[in-house]
């Protein structure tokens, strides 16, 4: 791939999803776009770009941006944070939950493993405070393909063996004739799925008590990272928490977003209207 093709794709990714693809990682472009190139019978990335330039409104541009993002995830990836959410944060919020309902959003949740992991923990919880509380979980991803996979609730042989104990597998999944594993109806009922780009306005999704966005902003350019964080934080309830990956930080990026006192590595927003802005 020549330099100008790389630069054009990198710009498309940055503007579309916030993802920063440095020149040292340009190999990701060809490997992640490979399936689209084959399907559309393009000889290479340059041909694909020419086609997008000629038809800027075709859905292919959005599909490319989504395909370039990382899909890597596994069940219970941020285990410690998830356990703390279910064992401490939700029970603390429960007494003042409006209508006995709490809402969690896994933003950039890829094929849904984060959401289903939280649903399993909630199902297993014997905490009295959560007994009469309905916890609704939404998982979203920029990629329609990943959302479709999350919605299907079907996971492959390798997926169900990473992060998931055999007890949890047998209690929450059933094996299909295809060799795949299907999440139980109980888990599926708890989890909703949407295709959504966190760089765009999120208000249509409503307000959430917990938002997780793990291992998503780490790969973004800093301006886009701030934009994503502001968008997410705006959807937090007054006492809501935003949880990002353990190797990621939001410190210094957004004015009005403060480290949470209840959950290490998480953030709360200032409730004054207009307090949230990208830091200068």
């Amino acid at each position: 791939m020549d330099d100008s093709t790389y630069r054009e794709i990198a710009e498309l990714a940055l503007n579309g999803s916030g993802q920063h693809i440095p020149p040292t990682k340009s190999y990701l472009i060809e490997s992640r776009l490979g399936p689209i190139l084959r399907r559309e019978q393009f000889a290479g990335v340059a041909e694909l770009l020419a086609c997008i330039r000629a038809r800027p409104s075709s859905p292919l541009g959005g599909e490319i941006v989504a395909a370039l993002t990382s899909k890597t995830t596994h069940f219970f990836r941020e285990r410690a944070a998830f356990e703390r959410i279910v064992n401490h944060v939700l029970p603390m919020m429960a007494p003042s939950a409006p209508g006995g309902k709490l809402r969690i959003w896994c933003a950039g949740g890829s094929s849904g493993q984060e959401a289903y992991s939280l649903a399993m923990l909630i199902g297993e919880s014997e905490n009295e405070a959560l007994k009469d509380i309905q916890v609704e979980i939404l998982t979203s991803d920029i990629s329609e393909k990943m959302s479709a996979r999350a919605r299907s609730g079907k996971f492959g042989h390798f997926d169900v063996q990473k992060g998931l104990s055999i007890h949890r597998l047998l209690s929450n999944f059933s094996r299909l004739d295809t060799g795949e594993w299907q999440v139980s109806q109980d888990l599926a009922n708890r989890v909703g799925v949407r295709t959504h780009n966190i760089l765009q306005d999120c208000s249509g999704l409503g307000v959430f008590d917990v938002i997780t966005c793990c291992n998503v902003i780490g790969g973004m350019g800093s301006q886009m990272r701030a934009r994503a964080l502001v968008n997410l934080a705006r959807q937090l309830s007054d006492s809501g928490v935003l949880v990002i990956g353990k190797d990621e930080t939001a410190t210094g990026l957004v004015t009005g977003l403060e480290p949470s006192r209840d959950l290490r590595g998480a953030y709360c927003r200032e409730v004054t209207p207009g307090a949230l802005t990208a830091a200068a």
């Binding site: 042989h157 063996q161 990473k162 992060g163 998931l164 055999i166 047998l170």
Partner: peptide, 23 residues
């Protein structure tokens, strides 16, 4: 289920890779 009832602590379904054994 039979393996677990007979005293196994975990179960890996073949084929496996390094990530599965680690997990």
């Amino acid at each position: 289920g039979e393996a677990m009832r007979s005293g196994a602590n975990e179960f890996i379904m073949k084929p496996f890779d390094a990530d599965i054994i680690h997990s």
